[in-house]
């Protein structure tokens, strides 16, 4: 295989897998509440920064990541309780959650800048360094890229199995279809909603840690662009579909890299949004989504 193509493909798949994780996080809250947490980018940033901070305090890397994930999960609960629920229950605009989740994300950015400083912080190598590699089909393959890919795909598959094969997964599905009927059936809808926000935040945190390892630094503004690309991946794959999130993320990652490599690096970022516009125009439900039908 051509070295040039292979390098672009591998990088595209690897970063695409991270977009897929973010997309899955967005899907989760969409299922239970039909809302998206636009503060996901800040949760990614906060998890990565907390990992750096806890590591610098002498905590083992695995514990630092775990501690950070617990904290962002708690923040996920807070977001549901104080930014989404009031916006959904208020009599006025049903889109208030867009502003409130985004606003909370900006608040987290400010807090991170105040307590950790606004400069880029070096992110530690967790499992492998940028120099570690394996040779695959005669090609040089970075282990960091492979770890990112493996973790992201494993999480998405685990989640898919959870939704399809467990009672709780079926309950989430039921809530996504009709929360009121689910409540009547005795499903703890409130707890499921809270859980979806916590899990969505954990997925954002994992994505933040994975991508920070690729870049090597993290600062308070980290994550904002990434959540936009995750959103594109979610829409492209089909809002609410796990398989769609994975395929959408990989498509966005690979196409961006190939366009950057073969056409122009200046077009690398823009192509993702061109894909979004195309998807909305040609297939608004996305690749794996179902068209929404509403009865009068």
């Amino acid at each position: 295989m051509d070295d040039f193509f292979f390098s672009l493909l591998l990088a595209g798949i690897s970063v695409g897998a991270v977009y897929a994780l973010i997309a899955l996080g967005l899907n989760l809250t969409f299922w239970t509440t039909k809302t998206l947490n636009f503060g996901q980018g800040s949760l990614m940033m906060l998890c990565a920064m907390l990992t750096v901070f806890l590591s610098s305090q002498g905590l083992a890397a695995a514990l630092a990541v775990l501690g950070s994930l617990v904290l962002v999960a708690a923040l996920g609960m807070f977001i549901e309780r104080w930014t989404v629920r009031p916006a959904l229950t208020s009599s006025g605009g049903s889109m208030g959650w867009v502003v409130s989740t985004l606003g909370f994300g900006i608040f987290l950015q400010g807090m991170a800048a105040k307590y950790f400083g606004s400069q880029a912080m070096a992110f530690p190598d967790l499992v492998f360094t940028a120099q570690d590699f394996v040779t695959l089909f005669g090609q040089y393959v970075s282990l960091q890229y492979l770890v990112v890919l493996a973790v992201a795909v494993a999480l998405i598959l685990t989640f898919e199995i959870f939704v399809r094969c467990t009672v709780w997964g079926h309950a989430v599905h039921a809530v996504s279809l009709d929360p009121e009927l689910a409540l009547v059936q005795g499903i703890p809808v409130r707890r499921l909603i809270l859980g979806s926000f916590m899990l969505s935040s954990i997925l954002a945190g994992v994505a933040g840690v994975l991508i920070a390892q690729i870049g090597g630094t993290v600062d308070p503004a980290f994550g904002f662009d990434l959540v936009l690309l995750g959103f594109v991946a979610a829409v492209l794959g089909g809002m609410g579909s796990s398989l769609g999130a994975l395929v959408g993320g990989l498509l966005v990652g690979v196409i961006s890299k190939l366009v950057g490599g073969y056409v122009s690096t200046a077009a690398e970022h823009g192509i993702a949004f061109a894909l979004l516009m195309l998807a909305l125009a040609v297939r608004p439900q996305g690749l794996f989504g179902r068209p929404e039908v509403s009865k009068a």
Binding site: L8, A11, G12, I214, L226, S256, V259, G261, T265
Partner: peptide, 9 residues
């Protein structure tokens, strides 16, 4: 966060 396209060019 990733500059692969630029670098391989």
């Amino acid at each position: 966060q990733d500059m692969t396209a630029q670098l391989v060019r």
